[in-house]
């Protein structure tokens, strides 16, 4: 219930109305949205129980490893009710063809696989917020100082998920396992997304904001 309360408000894409309609405009709008979403994710992380008690170094380590997983899980959850397309924001829904044109078709297909999985499971909001916090706590950062504190955080979240499933999804005793088994695909998808956006940086056609660049570099 705490995670539900601290769930951030929606953010919207802010396309430049004067820019010509082309692939660069779509990518520019997308990268600007991701940059603003990163600020939202960093502020959200502070409200995950136990996170703010970690050292600043460990907070940075977790976020630098997990930010793209958190971002993608949000994207996937928003996209669940839609037939097709990735709901980056309510006013920025990218369908297959648009993803192909901007060079993100491969990423689109992987994210779609994740969406299909969660759609079959009928992932609900409580599970979504818990998995998102788990992705943060389970980020396997190489630079963790206090391993025990991170383990406690993971245990706390695992317990919350187990409690929830025991009370709300009695009919399927394997449900929490099914949910946890989606996390490898989430990581794989996030890694692919990082590669895709690094390619966008290398191509140099799209202006990138500083925080987005900093987080892309931190994943190296």
């Amino acid at each position: 219930s705490h995670l539900l309360l601290v769930e951030p408000d929606k953010i919207y894409a802010m396309a430049d109305p004067t820019a010509p309609e082309n692939d660069v405009k779509v990518l520019t709008t997308l990268c600007d949205l991701v940059d603003r979403e990163l600020v939202v994710i960093i502020n959200w992380a502070k409200h995950v129980p136990g996170f703010s008690a970690l050292s600043l170094g460990d907070q940075m380590g977790l976020l630098q490893s997990a930010w793209m997983e958190v971002l993608i899980l949000g994207l996937v959850f928003r996209s669940l009710p839609y037939e097709e397309g990735l709901v980056y924001a309510d006013n920025l829904v990218l369908e297959r063809e648009q993803c192909r044109v901007v060079g993100l078709l491969d990423l689109y297909c992987t994210i779609l696989q994740l969406i299909t999985k969660y759609r079959k499971l009928q992932l609900d909001k409580e599970e979504f917020v818990t998995l998102k916090a788990m992705a943060l706590a389970n980020s396997d950062s190489m630079s963790i100082e206090n391993v025990e504190a991170i383990q406690n955080l993971q245990d706390l979240l695992h317990e919350a998920l187990q409690d929830y499933e025991t009370n709300q999804h009695l009919a399927d005793p394997h449900r929490s396992g099914k949910l946890l088994m989606t996390l490898p695909l989430l990581r794989q998808t996030a890694n692919k997304a990082i590669q895709s956006f690094r390619r966008v940086v290398t191509e140099g056609k799209v202006p990138m904001h500083k925080l987005f660049l900093e987080m892309l570099e931190a994943k190296a």
């Binding site: 960093i42 502020n43 170094g57 907070q59 630098q64 500083k210 925080l211």
Partner: peptide, 15 residues
């Protein structure tokens, strides 16, 4: 931490 100064600043920002 120098290299990741925006993240560092946002985490320290209490607002």
């Amino acid at each position: 931490k120098e290299k990741h100064k925006i993240l560092h600043r946002l985490l320290q920002d209490s607002t």
